[in-house]
Simulated scan of single mutants.
Amino acid sequence: MNRLVLLLSALVAALAFAQPAVGRPDDARLDTLFQLLQGTRDDAVAQRAEAEIWSIWLEHPGGDVLDLMKEGVRNLHAERFEQALADFDRVVATAPDYAEGWNKRANAHYLLGHYDAAVADIRTALSLEPRHFAALAGLGLVYLALDRPDGALKAFEGALAINPHLKGVRAQAADLRTALLGDAL
């Protein structure tokens, strides 16, 4: 059980504080980068492709939105989750088409135990950017918190189908498969 708690904590930290992304699935560069991410076995190449994906997603014309995102992330780091939630509320009100605003607000909801709200925000993020592998991995964490291991496994597998280089997600999915197989016996 301690291993599971450590894995979840590490995954939450990685997902909650990842670079902000804006849902721009129409950016032509993304298709090539996602193909590269899925096709490479080289970790360095995968890391560069992932970094470029985040960079493209980060592009947003509103500096005020980015400032709110930075403040929200600072509040997440400082474990001021209510304030972070308020910051991300302002982000999604200002820029409802900004996928990462919804994803970060989902992170704040998750950390506050507002699981249904987190699921709703993740679904919005995914409607804006269906390839948002961090949102899918976050959905897996929410489903684990809701004691829905089948849903968690499906979400983790969805994230891995997009980005097979998510080692923590891969380990979590393997643990869930083992647990679910054991339950089925």
Results as ranks from 00 to 15, higher is better:
Arg3Ile: 03
Leu4Asp: 11
Leu7Glu: 14
Leu7Val: 12
Leu11Gln: 15
Leu11Trp: 04
Leu11Arg: 11
Ala14Thr: 05
Ala16Pro: 04
Phe17His: 09
Phe17Lys: 00
Ala18Asn: 05
Pro20Tyr: 01
Pro20Met: 00
Pro20Leu: 05
Val22Cys: 13
Gly23Glu: 08
Arg24Ile: 11
Arg24Glu: 12
Arg24Gly: 07
Ala28Trp: 11
Ala28Cys: 00
Leu33Asn: 04
Phe34Tyr: 15
Leu36Ser: 13
Gly39Asp: 08
Asp42Leu: 03
Asp42Ile: 03
Asp42Val: 12
Asp43Gly: 09
Ala44Asp: 13
Val45Gln: 15
Arg48Pro: 00
Ala49Lys: 03
Glu50Phe: 12
Ala51Gly: 10
Glu52Gln: 11
Trp54Thr: 15
Ser55His: 11
Ile56Thr: 03
Trp57Thr: 08
Trp57Gly: 15
His60Trp: 04
Pro61Tyr: 08
Pro61Ile: 12
Asp64Val: 06
Val65Gln: 00
Leu66Asp: 12
Asp67Gln: 11
Met69Ala: 07
Lys70Thr: 07
Glu71Ser: 13
Gly72Thr: 09
His77Glu: 13
Glu79Asp: 14
Arg80Thr: 01
Phe81Trp: 09
Gln83Pro: 09
Ala86Met: 02
Ala86Ile: 04
Asp87Glu: 14
Thr94Arg: 14
Thr94Asp: 01
Ala95Leu: 00
Pro96Gly: 03
Glu100Asn: 11
Lys104Cys: 00
Lys104Trp: 03
Arg105Glu: 04
Asn107Thr: 12
Ala108Ile: 00
His109Ile: 03
Leu112Asp: 00
Gly113Cys: 03
His114Glu: 11
His114Asp: 06
Tyr115Gln: 08
Asp116Lys: 05
Ala117Pro: 07
Ala118Cys: 00
Val119Asn: 02
Ala120His: 03
Asp121Ser: 07
Ala125Asp: 11
Leu126Gln: 10
Leu126Phe: 05
Leu128Arg: 06
Leu128Tyr: 03
Phe133His: 06
Ala135Ser: 06
Gly140Asn: 10
Leu141Tyr: 04
Val142Tyr: 01
Leu144Tyr: 02
Ala145Tyr: 04
Asp147Val: 09
Arg148Met: 13
Arg148Lys: 14
Gly151Arg: 09
Phe156Arg: 03
His165Gln: 07
His165Asn: 05
His165Glu: 03
Leu166Arg: 09
Val169Gln: 02
Ala174Gly: 09
Asp175Asn: 14
Thr178Leu: 13
Thr178Met: 15
Ala179Gly: 10
Leu180Asp: 09
